[in-house]
């Protein structure tokens, strides 16, 4: 059994492009576009991280439950979405990200 990568990624890419174009065409405010994706990243983090955390507890305690492999599957699928949404998050806060990697002195020089 393999994991779906593209099928799950496409709706998120489409959704991001939609809200981004709505913001670019000034139909919605930038703050709304950013907050929608902040909410989605928070939700995927909760689901993916929660499933991973539960799996970790089950592994540590040696517990085998019928939901273990279902948790594993959804942890992976939501994790793929989280990776993608993190890229969107970095795109939303691109200036802050650049500031984080390039010190202020070097930015002034360049």
């Amino acid at each position: 059994m393999s994991y779906e990568v593209l099928t799950l990624s496409l709706p998120f890419i489409g959704g991001y492009l939609l809200t981004y174009s709505l913001y670019k065409f000034k139909i919605i405010k930038k703050v709304l576009h950013i907050n929608i994706w902040n909410f989605i990243i928070g939700l995927t983090f909760l689901i993916g991280g929660g499933a991973g955390f539960l799996l970790l507890i089950f592994l540590e305690l040696g517990m085998i439950t019928p939901i273990n492999h279902v948790l594993m599957y959804w942890h992976v699928e939501v994790g793929i979405s989280l990776t993608l949404i993190t890229i969107f998050h970095i795109h939303c806060y691109w200036r802050s990200t650049k500031k984080m990697f390039i010190p202020a002195k070097r930015r002034v020089k360049s």
């Binding site: 305690l61 040696g62 085998i64 439950t65 273990n68 492999h69």
Partner: peptide
């Protein structure tokens, strides 16, 4: 129940049965 869980710890940690190649984990 917890003891039975420990005794199964040597088997699949995700509780999968006959997981074919290349496996889910």
């Amino acid at each position: 129940l917890s003891l039975s869980g420990n005794s199964c710890a040597a088997s699949c940690p995700y509780g999968m049965v006959n997981d074919p190649y290349p496996g889910q984990c």
